[in-house]
């Protein structure tokens, strides 16, 4: 995973609420066996409309998406995070996220930033006016080149992993002894936990 400290650029002022993972990446795109190339299917139903917010020239290549409540609800498909990354989106700012989506986003280095609705409304207005938005992960603030400055909270562990681009599996395997202890205790106390074969 790539290290992320600062994301800066145009933000797409979408604001739509309850965006589910079928909208982010429709099921027909899930047949891939690779993580790449899903950007072509990202937000397909929205982008089928000419002049849609994703494809207007001003928003091409924008790294940030501004969205409404409950972003990423629906299925657990991680393809949603891959599709967004593949179309160039590195961060979503919304008032709330579905639990599964924010976990998937984190694991793929997509920043899911939670801000108050009023602050997002303000960012929507300045973004529509062409402002540059910056997410400074180290200092936990979202700023704009129009004098805005909004602090956000993030889990310290996630912050550390994102900033250092850490591989979570390697981190966990450092606790290998504790896992082995649990397995040994389980084999002793609850041997029935290993499935009977057939």
């Amino acid at each position: 995973m790539q290290a992320t400290r600062m994301i800066s650029g145009r933000a797409i002022p979408w604001g739509a609420k309850n965006i589910d993972t079928d909208i982010i990446i429709p099921a027909k795109w899930l047949k891939t066996v690779s993580r790449d190339g899903l950007g072509r299917g990202a937000f397909e139903s929205v982008r089928a409309v000419p002049g849609n917010i994703f494809d207007v020239p001003a928003n091409q290549g924008a790294p940030i998406l501004l969205a409404g409540d409950n972003f990423g609800c629906g299925s657990s498909r991680e393809h949603a995070a891959w599709a967004m990354l593949d179309m160039g989106l590195q961060a979503v700012i919304a008032p709330s996220f579905s639990d599964i989506f924010s976990g998937n986003a984190f694991k793929n280095g997509v920043l899911a930033v939670t801000l108050d609705e009023v602050h997002i409304a303000r960012l929507m207005a300045v973004a529509a006016d062409g402002a540059i938005i910056t997410i400074d992960l180290e200092n936990q603030v979202v700023t704009s080149d129009r004098q805005d400055r909004f602090a956000f909270a993030i889990d310290p562990f996630r912050k550390m992993c994102l900033m250092q681009g850490l591989d979570e599996i390697a981190l966990t395997l450092a606790a290998d002894d504790a896992i082995s202890v649990h397995e040994a205790r389980q084999a002793e106390d609850a041997p029935w936990l290993v499935p009977a074969q057939g």
């Binding site: 657990s76 393809h79 599964i100 976990g103 694991k107 979570e168 599996i169 395997l173 896992i179 397995e183």
Partner: peptide, 30 residues
């Protein structure tokens, strides 16, 4: 790796859907 894993909770299992990175994490570390 499917959100309707919640179904198994009917038997009193703590069951939930995970994404592919978590599938990889569970395969590697349980």
């Amino acid at each position: 790796g499917d959100s309707h894993t919640a179904a198994h909770g009917a038997l009193g299992a703590l069951a939930f859907g995970i994404g592919t990175s978590e599938v990889e994490h569970v395969l590697a570390t349980q």
